[in-house]
């Protein structure tokens, strides 16, 4: 009975975390799409490297991420590797949320 409860709890935690991650991804996608509706963020993987996102876009996105997730994005984070794709942005937000 205790084992079953433990498994159930860990499953609940796992699904909670998964839901949070899905929510976070959706929210980031919403922010990105609002800033640049002309870009397909689900498929682009070189957003900064290929000049799709410009510094003006990045700063606007940072302001929104900062506000939505209550994180502090320092200038050090404003590099291509952190903004080249939706995955990269999500990974950065996750990392900074954990650091806060």
């Amino acid at each position: 009975m205790t084992i079953c409860k433990g498994v159930l709890n860990s499953n609940v935690l796992f699904y909670k975390k998964l839901k949070m991650e899905v929510d976070m991804r959706d929210q980031i996608l919403e922010i990105l799409t609002e800033q640049r509706p002309d870009v397909d963020f689900n498929s682009e993987t070189s957003l900064v490297t290929n000049g799709i996102l410009e510094s003006f876009d990045i700063v606007s996105i940072v302001a929104e991420l900062d506000d939505t997730f209550d994180i502090e994005i320092s200038p050090k984070e404003l590099v291509a590797e952190n903004f080249d794709s939706l995955d990269a942005i999500e990974a950065m937000v996750e990392r900074l949320s954990e650091e806060e």
Binding site: S55, V62, A63, D66, D67, E72, L78
Partner: peptide, 17 residues
């Protein structure tokens, strides 16, 4: 890298935003 980004993500400007 050394003016635009630091100024634009500075705490004061973020609060104002």
């Amino acid at each position: 890298d050394y003016v635009f980004y630091p100024v634009s993500v500075s705490k004061g400007l973020m609060k104002l935003t």
